[in-house]
Simulated scan of single mutants.
Amino acid sequence: MGSGKSTVGARLAERLGWAFVDLDAEIVRTQGQAIAEVFRNQGEAHFRQVEHEALLRILNMLGGPTVIALGGGTFIQERNRDLLCQRGATTIYLSGEFAVLLERCGAEQGTRPLAQDIEEFRKLHADRQPIYRSAELTVEIGNRSPEEISSEIVATLEKRNSQSAVPE
């Protein structure tokens, strides 16, 4: 939460010339209510099921290279990590210091159901770290702009692709 997944994802897709999908926005569109309302009205377990189904639907509809901004809890679910792995997705963790994430989430108080209590948010952040760090790439966001972060990701992907090319 607060790492800039949606903004960086959109910039990254633009730089790569790929399509972009924001999973949370897709959930809001299909559910007809904000994420916070889904949590409040149906609970987190229901939301996680809806989230998984939305990810599956998006992956099944892809028509080409696409950047997908996942919600903060999407990657925590093993079934979603497995699904992304099966599809050959490159996973990227946008890592940030807790204080930076808290400041960013504080500006959106009320819209982030799992960031309402600072100590619970701190615990959630710490608990999720080992799983987030299992992503293929980790990019430290610091106080950098989305353009700087997306530039680093593009450079890293280009370097990886050039290193994996087999000479003829």
Rank of each mutant, 00 (worst) to 15 (best):
R112F: 04
P146Q: 05
I92Q: 05
Y93R: 09
I58H: 05
A99E: 14
Y93F: 15
A45Q: 12
A165R: 14
A107D: 05
I27P: 06
L12F: 11
R160Q: 08
L55W: 12
A10R: 10
E78A: 09
E53Q: 13
R112C: 01
V67E: 04
L12N: 07
A69I: 04
E119R: 03
G72T: 13
G32W: 08
T74Q: 00
L84I: 14
G17W: 11
T30I: 06
R122E: 12
Q163Y: 08
A126F: 13
A54I: 00
S162W: 07
I92S: 02
Q33M: 15
E97Q: 12
D22M: 06
E51G: 05
L55Y: 07
T90C: 15
R57A: 15
T30A: 08
I35R: 02
A107M: 06
Q33I: 06
N41D: 15
E119G: 00
E120I: 13
R128S: 05
G71Q: 07
I76Q: 13
S162G: 02
A107C: 09
D22A: 06
F121N: 10
T91G: 03
N60Q: 14
P167Y: 01
H125G: 07
K159R: 15
A19C: 10
L124M: 02
N60F: 00
S3T: 15
R160K: 09
E108C: 00
E78N: 03
L16G: 01
R81P: 09
T7N: 00
G71V: 13
Q42A: 13
L102W: 00
G106V: 06
R29F: 03
V38I: 14
A10I: 00
R144H: 11
S162Q: 14
A165L: 13
D24V: 07
G63K: 15
A69Y: 03
L137K: 14
I27L: 10
E108S: 01
L12T: 12
D22N: 08
Q116T: 14
L16F: 00
R122C: 09
G9M: 05
D82M: 06
S162C: 06
A10D: 03
L55A: 11
M1F: 11
